[in-house]
C-alpha cells in the first residue's frame, strides 16, 4: 500500500504519490486520462491534483479540459469521498488574460473560479484549493536575481477572507499555496 500522510493540520490524509494531470487534454485524450485514473486508484493513489489552467501548454481553446476529463470520470466512478481532489486558481499575468478578464485573488475572482472548477469536476466540493502563483510581483517559475518591483497586489487578508467564505460554504475543505516564496 502507498503510505498516507496528513495534509498539514487537517484530518485529510493523502497518498505520498499524487497523480498529476496537466497533460490531459493536450498530450492525452479523455479515454487515456480515465485509464490513468483507473490504474492509479487501483494501485493506492487517492490524491489527484489539477488546475483551472490545465492542460499545459495553456491555451484558451483547451482551457478546462483537464478538469472536465477528471469530472466525467468522478461522475462515472462515484465514491467521491474516497478521493482527495486538489485544484488551483490562476494568478495574474499577461498570458492568462482570457480568464475572466484577468486572474486576481480577489473574492469575486476566487468565488467564480471555484464555481467553474466545481462544474467541470462535477462535484460539490474541492478538498484542497490552491493559489497557483502569487498575486504580486515576485520570483517564481525559475526566475533568478530578485529585484523588488512595486505591483498592484490583492492584500493577503482579503485573499484569506475570500477563501474563508468558501471554506464555510463547504465548497472547499482546505487551502494551499503554490509557486510561493518564504515571504508568502
Amino acid at each position: 500500500m502507498i503510505e498516507l500522510r496528513p495534509l498539514g493540520h487537517t484530518d485529510i490524509q493523502v497518498s505520498s504519490i499524487c497523480l498529476g494531470t496537466m497533460t490531459w487534454g493536450e498530450q492525452n485524450t479523455e479515454a487515456e486520462a480515465h485509464a490513468q485514473l483507473d490504474y492509479a486508484t487501483t494501485h493506492g493513489i487517492q490524491f489527484i491534483d489539477t488546475a483551472e489552467l490545465y492542460p499545459v501548454p495553456p491555451r484558451p481553446e483547451t482551457q478546462g479540459r483537464t478538469e472536465s476529463y477528471l469530472g466525467s470520470w468522478l461522475r462515472q466512478r462515484g465514491h467521491r469521498d474516497d478521493l482527495v481532489i486538489a485544484t488551483k486558481a490562476c494568478g495574474p499575468g499577461d498570458w492568462v488574460q482570457y480568464f475572466r478578464g484577468g486572474p486576481r485573488h480577489t473574492a469575486a475572482y476566487l468565488t467564480a473560479a471555484v464555481e467553474d472548477s466545481l462544474a467541470r469536476l462535477q462535484t460539490d466540493y474541492i478538498d484542497l484549493y490552491q493559489l497557483h502563483w502569487p498575486d504580486r510581483a515576485t520570483n517564481f517559475f525559475g526566475q533568478l536575481g530578485y529585484r523588488h518591483r512595486e505591483s498592484s497586489e490583492t492584500p493577503i487578508d482579503e485573499i484569506l477572507g475570500a477563501l474563508d467564505t468558501l471554506v464555510r460554504s463547504g465548497k472547499i475543505r482546505a487551502i494551499g499555496l503554490s509557486n510561493e516564496t518564504p515571504w508568502g
Binding site: L7, G8, H9, T10, I12, D49, K88, L128, Q130, G142, I156, D157, L160, G161, L163, D164, V167, A174, I175, G176, L177, S178, N179, E180, P182, W183, G184
Partner: peptide, 22 residues
C-alpha cells in the same frame, strides 16, 4: 510566512500545503 501570520491574527484559514517544483 505572511499567509500564516495574517491567518492567525485574523482567525482565518491556515494554508496546509505548498506546491513548488522540487
Amino acid at each position: 510566512m505572511r499567509f500564516l501570520e495574517v491567518a492567525r491574527h485574523a482567525q482565518l484559514p491556515l494554508v496546509q500545503s505548498i506546491q513548488n517544483p522540487y
